[in-house]
Design a protein around this nucleic acid. Structure first.
Lengths: 336, 336
DNA sequence: TTTATTTACGTAAACGTTTACGGATAATCG
DNA sequence: CGATTATCCGTAAACGTTTACGTAAATAAA
């Protein structure tokens, strides 16, 4: 197609391509009259600069990548929302990749991105064992910011929430509401994020004089169906009177399982979950959640990335921790 | 940085850049021994081709854009999920943009994308009046596929659901369950999608001998708070005994409003909503939904786009309609 | 054996920008 | 008035690929 480019503009204006380019980039070397002429003509001819030529020459893309385990997830979609807003404000483009918790897919994305297609990467790690070498290699080439799903062993800037404290407080809350046998639905166990949540659970129990019972901890396993039977069996066999779930996808099955087992929440079983469900309030019963500031995490992560772009400092280790919110609702309430 | 490129590979292998390029693209002009040598060296040196140089030369980007009103939305995040999976299978990249239902933002995205940054666009229109001229201009330059939020006046390939029938059947269901005064919570009214849902509602009423009562139809208005008071006032004043909501964001307020007004769903008010809530089952009461095949819509839309890429036919008008599912739950059930 | 064809590669141009370098003119200064 | 400086613009190279065109050698056809 007869796409209009700088040379045509130059021809039309009796100027050199260099001058046109400089005028469009508002260079000080160009007189204001010429700038006006160029801009007018560019608008008239509907000129749109070729981003590839520009990226090739300048070695930057005005694009960032976001790698997440899944998009269709309340937490991640909110985080992406935040990221996109920040990016848009700076006229950056946002590429999206989902790993489906698979580190092999994750690795391949990272490899593909190391070509310079993006100026930086925002990543929330897959729960499978991560390829640290690959990650290190990429982060030497371009700035990488981790959010939520992080790994302490990997150097870099990280945006997280106070996972340990949140889990601790949630368990404390369950205990205060009378729970004697508190189960933990574990996930993300290969990540620091998961470790901290677990540790918060363990420490809260310990500090309240509860014994350590490994049987009260189960780990998620893939599919929705597997998770359901896992949770159902756990509740049926262990008969916990309180549960802290480290992810939403393990808490929802509790509702279904309790229905099936004719148990009522919170009377028979009190439930708290890390969750960004928009309408936890409307569940039956309403769900007590540890609500992560997902949108803000996205905003913060993207903000940091842009700061790095400006400062060119990207070989450092820093963790920014935002606070989650324990929102107490019916599912964890003591019977009156 | 000393990024490795084709010239370096060529130097290292005592070949020309052309040969290396051709070898990497598996050209028939290159002997298999040479190909092997090149591939080995490329792997050894961790060569990653520069996507901008390639895009510049080939005039294509291996990237598609997805424009949606919002990402943090059950329907759209599922659709994007489907799109991303299809794109990944073909080694394509996915750019994400959200319009926040603002047609000015939408317009500016379309403009930015007409530079050739992407090979095609998947778009779900903002509910504000769309800029048809801009859209037409873009779709003359590159293939555009519309999904869900479409406009019949705009030519192009469209993936939608059976909005009319779905709305019609939902109202029919409400009537069968005893509703006498059925309200409609309208949205997307500037789009065909919205018109069809409305028409389904209207026709179902008419065919059942119900009078046309404009007071029973209200239109959404921006913020969550505004929507809440709108819905609350509507229920308080009109006292409908049934409601069909054209979007999830207008149905949730019904729950809160009924709580506040001491009305019970479904006894005082039966409710059905277009919705892709993952756990409508767990609401109190569980919500009867018109569930759109969001993931499949994404897959279908992306699939069509790739077909267009291959056939180069992209000046036609075609609509593909997938079926939604009316999932009957407590919120619309007749009292026993 | 001569000619035609195939095979395997190299040369150089092209994609559309940006920018280092240079230069002409006009304004300023000593 | 000559020298310096500021202003404004052009020339050409560069970014890293891909590909049209050309060609030498090897093979096949005549």
């Amino acid at each position: 197609m007869g796409e209009i480019n700088i040379k045509m503009l130059a021809l039309e204006l009796n100027l050199s391509a260099a001058t046109v380019s400089r005028a469009l980039r508002d260079s000080y070397e160009i007189s204001s009259e010429t700038k006006a002429r160029v801009i007018e003509m560019a608008k008239k001819l509907n000129y749109e600069p070729n981003p590839f030529a520009s990226s090739l020459r300048q070695q930057k893309s005005k694009t960032i990548a976001v790698i997440v385990p899944a998009i269709a997830n309340n937490f991640f979609s909110l985080a992406i929302n935040g990221i996109e807003e920040v990016a848009r404000a700076r006229d950056y483009h946002v590429l999206i990749y989902q790993t489906h918790e698979n580190s092999e897919i994750e690795r391949s994305f990272l490899m593909r991105l190391s070509s310079g297609r993006v100026d930086g990467i925002l990543i929330s790690l897959a729960s499978e064992e991560v390829d640290k070498r690959q990650l290190k290699e990429v982060s030497e080439k371009l700035p990488v910011v981790f959010f939520d799903r992080v790994h302490d062993d990997i150097e870099g800037v990280k945006i997280t929430t106070d996972d340990y404290t949140s889990a601790y407080n949630a368990v404390q809350h369950l205990i205060e509401n009378g729970c004697k046998k508190i189960g933990y639905l574990m996930a993300l166990n290969s990540l620091s994020t998961g470790e901290k949540r677990l540790q918060g659970y363990l420490d809260a129990l310990k500090n309240n004089g509860f014994p350590y019972q490994p049987d009260l901890i189960i780990t998620n396993s893939g599919t929705v169906e597997q998770n359901y039977s896992l949770v159902r069996n756990f509740i049926a066999e262990q008969k916990p009177d309180g549960i802290l779930s480290s992810i939403e996808d393990l808490a929802m099955p509790c509702y279904y399982a309790c229905k099936d087992l004719k148990l009522t929440i919170p009377d028979d079983l009190k439930l708290i979950s890390f969750s960004n469900l928009a309408h936890a309030e409307l569940l039956n019963p309403s769900l007590t959640t540890i609500n992560q500031p997902a949108f803000e995490i996205g905003v913060e992560a993207a903000g940091i990335l842009f700061k790095i772009f400006n400062n060119r400092r990207y070989a450092f280790n820093e963790t920014i921790t935002l606070k989650s919110n324990l929102i107490k609702r019916e599912s964890s309430m003591r019977a009156e």
